[in-house]
Structure formats: structure tokens, C-alpha cells
Amino acid sequence: MNAARPQRAGLRDVYGVWLLYGFTACAVFATYWRLPPQVLWKVTNSGFVGGAGRAFVFLSFSAALAAVAVLAIVVDRLADRRAELIAIVALALCATVAIPGVQTESHLDPKWANLPAVIGVVLAVGLTVWAGLRGRRGLPRTSRAGDIARLVVGGLSLFFASPYIAAELGFFLDGVPVLGWIFQTGKIRPEPGSNYSHAAVHHGHHHGMDGFLLTVTALLLSRHLGTIRRPLLRTLTAAYLALMLVYGVTNQIEDLWIEQVVKRDWTSWQIPNVLHPSLSVAWAVMVACALAIYIAFLRPDATVIRKS
């Protein structure tokens, strides 16, 4: 077991998470502005309206899920009654992402139902800035083994997110050395469960990209668990991040499986879609995996984090 090592105080990882979602939102906006709906997925608007609308929907989903964990970290740093009230409101707004019908894979144009989650994200960003300026300076402590594990998992997730990053920017990996050979992206393939064909990895946003973003979010924010002083809040945040990690990895794998395995006609079997919570075997397995990760790595006396 390696000795724990202190990191520089502050919210660098939290700001990094927000920058990640900010850059992605900008990429979504630009791609959906410049490309016609026909080469994208389940949208009808184009131009500025198309770009702004799809970025809006993006922020109402994975960014809202990330905001829930961020709220716990920054509110604990502030220890201010006003911040706690704002965080409760933001949490309730972000939680609307789980309401059936708010996120619909078959219709990705913006809806009024997306607005509460976006407001929740904006409030979470505001609280982050407040905590950075006025909050208690935290001293996250992580083990070397924990950070190495985060780098390995994050690096693998980044590699397999390559086709989604390219799609987010509006191009295929065809012709790109190594990546173009490993991943099929521009080849026209039949869409499973439908009667039409599409590029193997269509331009624009994918839920596999959401999976990558949530995976990285969980890895980065888990470094701050040791700074949360309230035991119950820390336990709940750790459990949530464990589930976020499993949810992110599973969605990334599920999307990759369809586009890189099923669409190559290697098999017709598909990994169950777990984008929305449900009473299913797949979700039961995910929760069990999250519990195992919490017990092994994220509980207060786990080796990958150290209480500050």
C-alpha cells in the first residue's frame, strides 16, 4: 500500500469537470449548427437554432448528473446556509432528468421539460465559483495507487471515446492512422431494429460520449471525497459516484457494442439499454457493481482515497 500524498488545495478537478462539459457543449453547438439534420440523429432543427437546441438538451442530461455530485463537494466547502438552500433547489432541478419523458432518445430537439435541469446546472456552476472564491480550502489526499487506477480507467475510456469525440466535432475517423483501422465510423450500415441505413457512427452527440464524460467526472470528483467533512454527505456522494462510474462505463460500452460489433454483423445480440433507470436485471447488475466499487475503493477507509 502506498502512502497517501497531499494535493494542492482547491477545486481544480471540479473546474476541470465543468470545462469538459463546457467544451463539449461548444462542440455540440458548432456541429449541429453547421451540419444538416439528415446526417445527425433524431433532430429536426438546423443552423443556430439546431446548434443551440441540441447543446441545451446535452446540458440537461449528463451535465445535470455531474452537477449532483459537484453540489455535495462545493456546499460542504462553503458551509453557508444560503449555499445549502441554493444547492437543494439545484438538486431538485437536476433530478428532473430522471423523470420519464424528459430525456427521449427518439426526439432530441429541446423541450420545456429540459429547462429545469439546465437551470440546476447553472446554479451548480455558480456555487462552484462561490466555493472557489469564498469556500474552505480543501486538501484532497489520494493514494498513488488510486491515481494510477484513475489514469488507467480514464485513459481506456478516452481511447474508446475516439469515435464519439470525432462525431462530436463532425467528422469520421476514416483514413485516420490506427484509429481509422480499429473503429468503423463513416461506413453506411443498417441501423439495428430499423429499416434504414446510416453511418456506423453518425455525426453529432452520442450517449457513448455521455458515458465517457460521466466516467471521467466520477474519476475526478472521487479525488475530493476525503475533503467532505460531513460523514453522511460523504457516504452518499461516494455511493453516487460509484454508480455514476458504472453507469458511464456501461453506456459507453453499450453504444460501442452496437456500432463496432453489431453493425459489423459479428452478432445480433445487443447489450441492454440502460440509459434510463428501470427495474431490470441490467440495472440490478449495475447497482451491484457500484456497491462493490464503493466498498472496495470509495468508502472512507478505502485505499484509493484518504480522509483529509
Rank of each mutant, 00 (worst) to 15 (best):
L225Y: 15
G170K: 05
H207M: 10
H203E: 08
A161C: 00
I148G: 08
A242S: 15
L219P: 07
A166C: 01
H207G: 10
L158P: 04
H205K: 04
G211V: 00
M209N: 13
I148N: 12
V178D: 05
T237G: 08
L123S: 14
D174T: 01
F212Q: 07
A242W: 13
A145E: 13
T215E: 13
T227R: 09
T128D: 15
L236W: 05
L232I: 09
Y196L: 11
V121M: 14
V178E: 09
V121A: 15
I182F: 04
A167I: 03
P163K: 03
R137W: 00
S197G: 03
V216A: 15
A238F: 08
P177K: 03
T215V: 11
I165R: 00
G132W: 04
Y164K: 00
L213W: 05
S197E: 08
H205T: 12
M244A: 11
G208T: 08
A200S: 10
V216T: 13
I188K: 01
G211T: 02
R223L: 13
S197F: 01
F172R: 01
L241P: 14
S143M: 04
A166G: 03
R141I: 14
S194I: 02
S194K: 09
S157C: 10
W130F: 06
H202Q: 09
F183W: 06
Y164A: 00
L139G: 08
M244S: 11
H203Y: 11
V178T: 11
V153Q: 05
G248V: 09
G208K: 04
R134K: 06
I228K: 08
L169D: 00
R234I: 02
F159I: 09
H224L: 15
T235R: 04
P192K: 04
L243M: 14
E168D: 12
L220R: 10
I148D: 14
L173D: 01
A200R: 02
L220V: 11
A218T: 12
G155C: 07
Q184H: 08
T128N: 13
F160G: 06
V176N: 04
G135P: 02
I188F: 06
A200L: 01
Y164L: 01
W130I: 02
I182C: 01
A218W: 08
T142C: 15
I182S: 02
V176T: 04
I165K: 00
G170M: 02
A145D: 11
A145R: 07
V153I: 15
S197Q: 06
G175W: 09
G248P: 10
L219E: 13
A242P: 07
L241I: 04
G170H: 04
D210K: 00
T217Q: 12
A200M: 01
F172Q: 01
I165A: 07
T128L: 12
A199K: 01
R136D: 10
P163R: 03
L151V: 12
G211K: 06
L243H: 10
S222P: 15
L225F: 14
H205W: 12
